[in-house]
Design a protein around this nucleic acid. Structure first.
Length: 344
DNA sequence: CGCTATGATTTGTA
DNA sequence: TACAAATCATAGCG
């Protein structure tokens, strides 16, 4: 592809260093064919990248700078080439003049030209080197995302937190779930993964600190969860073995609270085969348990276990084994039974 | 400016 | 390869 300089010189030594530089410049789009004027190229690149708009905006500055480097590189290169040619013809003229006084072999001329070209190509090499350096610096400055960290929008954080706290017993979104969250939050899937990675580790590290937040988001989604859980319980009750009713009609002003608690009971009770509703309801249980723990006094209705605590966290300090399906949440003891109240 | 919050990266592991 | 943990580097706040 690159034939700009090729014609003139520097093809004899298969210099690996030079190859490296050339390749890099090519890869960075500094060398190679000119693609229209600076801003136009930037705009085109931004448009071509499609997808996240903020991403291209973020990179437009980088693009502009890169174009600048590219232009400098090309003008310098041209200058060098021109100087090289001028100098060559100058020397040729000198030699021609001398040829009047003494015989000059074509071989000698060739040798002189070779020397000149080598000199200039070493200069070019330096140019390429410094251009590469500039590009590298630019990259680290603009593309290292850590330097350009932006907090996610309030709304995005909201969505992520909602998911996290409503799946607290197993906050590992599937690939599809990540994609959906990414879409909803206008961020990338890796950002979602990063977020959950950070959230899990930080939540686990200091649960007390997140308690308030947890309750907030639990309450936030409680209404929806209640509806969903109630609906789910309608289905599960059809083939559920027993449905004990230990009253506990809550002063909890949610619609269908009665069903909600029944559902809780059957889920946390000893022998529940979580296969049917299990996974779906589990998230709602998480949410509900938060609310319940907050309102206090309903613990007995939930099987007697101390409810809140790092539920979902096992003794080893991890969430339940990620390899086991979430539908089997230790049948004998509810998810909340781990209980190692370390909050605060 | 010092502090904490937070997104991203690096490193090590199963 | 996904994750945990440690770490980095910046954002944002008082």
């Amino acid at each position: 592809v690159l034939t700009c300089i090729r014609g003139a010189q520097e093809e004899d030594p298969p210099d690996p260093q030079l190859m490296r530089l050339d390749n890099m410049l090519l890869a960075e789009g500094v060398a190679g064919p000119e693609k229209g004027g600076g801003s136009a190229a930037a705009a085109a690149a931004a448009a071509a990248s499609g997808g996240a708009a903020d991403n291209s905006i973020e990179h437009s500055d980088y693009r502009a700078k890169l174009t600048q480097i590219r232009q400098i590189y090309h003008t310098e290169l041209e200058k060098y080439e021109q100087a090289c040619n001028e100098f060559t013809t100058h020397v040729m003229n000198l030699l021609r003049e001398q040829s009047r006084t003494r015989p000059i072999s074509p071989k000698e001329i060739e040798r002189m030209v070779g020397i000149i070209h080598r000199k200039f190509s070493s200069i070019q090499m330096q140019l390429k080197q410094s251009t590469c350096e500039a590009v590298m610096i630019l990259r680290s400055r603009f593309l290292d995302a850590r330097r350009k960290r932006r907090n996610f929008s309030k709304q995005a954080t909201e969505i992520l937190n909602e998911y996290f706290y409503s799946h607290l017993s197993n906050p590992y979104p599937s690939e599809e779930a990540k994609e959906e969250l990414a879409k909803k939050c206008s961020i990338t899937v890796s950002q979602v993964s990063n977020w959950f990675g950070n959230k899990r580790i930080r939540y686990k590290k200091n649960i007390g600190k997140f308690q308030e937040e947890a309750n907030l988001y639990a309450a936030k989604t409680a209404v929806n969860a209640a509806h969903a859980a109630a609906a789910a319980v309608q289905n599960s009750q059809a083939n559920s073995p027993t449905t004990p009713n230990s009253g506990s009609s809550g002063s909890f002003n949610l619609p269908n609270s009665g069903d909600m608690f029944l559902s809780m009971q059957s889920l946390n009770g000893d022998s529940y085969q979580g296969a049917q509703v299990g996974a779906n309801v589990q998230s709602q249980v998480d949410t509900l348990r938060h609310v319940i723990s907050q309102t206090a006094g309903y613990n007995d209705a939930l099987g007697g276990n101390t409810m809140y605590s790092p539920h979902g966290l096992n003794a080893n300090g991890g969430w339940q084994d990620a390899t086991t399906p979430s539908s089997v949440i230790s049948p004998t003891e509810g998810p909340g039974s781990v209980h190692s109240d370390t909050s605060n």
